[in-house]
Design a protein around this nucleic acid. Structure first.
Lengths: 252, 252
DNA sequence: CAGTGGTCTAGACCACGCT
DNA sequence: GCGTGGTCTAGACCACTGT
């Protein structure tokens, strides 16, 4: 490793530790697709040799990336690029759980795609996805059910360009989490998400698609999901029934 | 440091790294009150000498405790026992934020204690607090407002024994977060919390205390807060208006 | 057995906060 | 200048996974 910091001119000293720079390099390789989700990255010793630093330094870089759920360490086997296809992190972003029983205890969700079309971004959708109003987006509306009961209505907006070729059929036929589909088919990995939650009354649309009476209180969950580098890549507006389920948030 | 693991009999090998054992010892000192919230703990070098391990090993132990928000590292100054009295972690457990503006932008919340009484735990309250039904508990009902508008109605249940002497006056006169009061007055530090969120319709009680019309959708937030060692120490049922605010959840 | 990540050590040096 | 936490290194050894 050469050259620490020093950007010239009169900015803050901007000291950046070596391991942070290594972290940035590894992140670059993840972003560029040099190592794909589910694959093993080179061993710590190899990376240390490649970057010309000690093993301890790449360890610290990998430690942080693992803490951010971008990498997954497995003793004796190696370090792997995290993926939404794994069982363990299946529900990393879905916080709705049944009132009784564990997360996956109801079996896989039934997914029913109501609508999937190309349209133009409204101002609020454009703002959320860092696009310009009028840019082309994909809009998907679907209903998720458990045990035959509809529980979640979701509207999803995606920028058209990175998701070119996504169709209702493709989503419907894919087994596994939606974000796993995004990884394998479009090389988009969701890394972080922000959710804003409110309580609302069911409108006629909610009532019809979720089989509830008009005015039933629902959870409104607006999610923006980000890829590497904090680029917003998905806007999702979910409406959750909370009679049989609840939104679980554990704070450490 | 002496003696790794080896509990005898025929359990799993149960290998426990040195730094985990150190972590346990530090945790014990936190629990026992040897170091109180806001105070500095001994320097890494001192602790290394005390436990007869290398500085690197206590570093790793402290790293994990800092990641769990039990300790706070400040370069050049020392390592401190975390406290709810600090500005930075003021809102660690309160996720309700105004729709426009940052977390504290509305100034401090107005707190209005509606009720504070000793009573007996119902079965569900007892279960949440790991008590027996009928055990004495304190129940506090209060309303939090921002800018003169009531936004949160909260019912709080506390086990009577650790909070002996807590009164409405004491809560009302205390400036700062409730959990900071618990630390200084009762030596109870909340470390972790779980929240279950649902959407409900305002009943007449909600309507009256929150100045909303009957049937207004509200967020129901049931929180169980834990001290060290995962002992439940507080049950809190909150009802949030989400017209001017929303519940914010960031997932990394 | 070889290869991987995980632990532990000892020492040198750096950045930060205070006095 | 001193003491604190923060970085970086090099090396030894341990635990886990596969062949």
């Amino acid at each position: 490793m050469v050259d620490v910091a020093s950007t010239g001119s009169n900015a803050t000293p901007a000291f950046s530790p070596l391991y942070q720079q290594i972290k940035g390099l590894i992140l670059g390789s993840l972003r560029s697709g040099e190592w794909k989700p589910g694959e093993a990255i080179p061993s710590e010793i190899e990376l240390a040799a490649r970057f010309r630093v000690s093993q301890g330094t790449v360890r610290k870089a990998i430690d942080e990336l693992a803490a951010e759920n971008l990498l997954l360490r497995r003793q004796g086997k190696g370090t792997f690029v995290a993926t939404h296809a794994e069982q363990q992190v299946q529900f990393r972003f879905l916080r709705l759980v049944p009132n009784s029983g564990a997360r996956g205890s109801e079996g896989p969700a039934q997914r029913d795609i109501v609508e999937c079309r190309r349209t133009r971004a409204s101002t609020d959708v454009a703002k959320a996805l860092a696009l310009r109003a009028g840019d082309t987006v994909l809009q998907i509306r679907r209903v998720l059910g458990f045990g035959g009961v509809p529980v979640i209505l979701e509207d999803i907006w995606l920028p058209a360009t990175p998701f070119k070729g996504l169709t209702a059929e493709r989503m419907a036929s894919y087994k596994g989490p939606t974000y796993a589909l995004f990884e394998t088919e479009f090389n988009v990995r969701m890394v972080r998400a922000e959710e804003k939650i409110r309580a609302i009354s069911a409108t006629d649309i909610h009532a019809e698609l979720l089989s509830v009476t008009l005015g039933t209180p629902l959870l409104s969950v607006e999610r923006i999901a980000y890829t590497y580098q904090s680029e917003p890549m998905e806007l999702r507006r979910g409406y959750y029934r909370t009679d049989t389920h609840h939104y679980q948030n554990d704070m450490n």
